[in-house]
Amino acid sequence: MKALAKPLGFSVALILAFAAVTYVLPQMKGEAPEEKAVDVGELTMDSFIALGENLYSGKGTCTLCHNQLGRAPDLLTFNVGKVSLERISDSRYQGKAKDSESYLRESMLQPSAYVVKGFGKKGSNDTESPMPAVDQAPIQLSEVEISAIVAYLQKKDGNAVTVALPKAAPAAGKKDGVAEAKPPQAQSPEEVIAKFGCAACHSILKTQSAIGPSLNDVGKRLKIDQIRASIIDPKAEIAKGFPPIMPDFPTMTVSELEMVVKFLAQQTTAQP
């Protein structure tokens, strides 16, 4: 035991010494971006621009690369509005923008439309940008948020802000990760059927419709996996004699899907 005591003490001391190093370094916590709905009704142009500034260094993670370290052009060091017009007229420009606003928006959604020399992906000869599209994961900015950043970039150099202040929330179902008003989760199969309007085309519950095949006896005709498959990808297999018009349900949750699939699998009796 004596032989062990000293090495053990030495090892514990060394472990604690390593821990001590973490105490002398700056303490920062990296919060996950908050999914906040932007209340466009309350927005003023100033608060809209402030939102853009906030997103630029926050959720948008723009400053991760666009800084003085040279990973990407530091947008805060030059007049972005003026430079964007020069780039539109550059022979290397591949996009469709006509003005500063559309160029800035395009550069966030299709970063490879114009790649600043020296900042392209390795081996792409500056034709491909390493920047991710900001409306895609992992950044996932909404349309309102992208517009706010464009407004901020225009304003920071004293240029005229041409971005229109958003007037209303985007329509339901429109791709907008933050501002989209999601319908509530259905709690029963009946609610799922009502929520997604199944009865508009199919005979189910007490509703009759001949546009699509009746679902009252679907449990007898199809296996549970086939029912699930026909909801996930309605066009994969079309029932004989019916038109291929059933839409996809991208907003259907997994639990809603499983709820309605289970319910339909139990429908084995043709009702009058």
């Binding site: 390593f18 821990a19 973490t22 105490y23 700056p26 920062m28 916590k29 990296g30």
Partner: peptide, 9 residues
């Protein structure tokens, strides 16, 4: 979230 360095330590 990403915890502070102390927490990690």
């Amino acid at each position: 979230f990403i915890p502070t360095l102390q927490t990690v330590g």
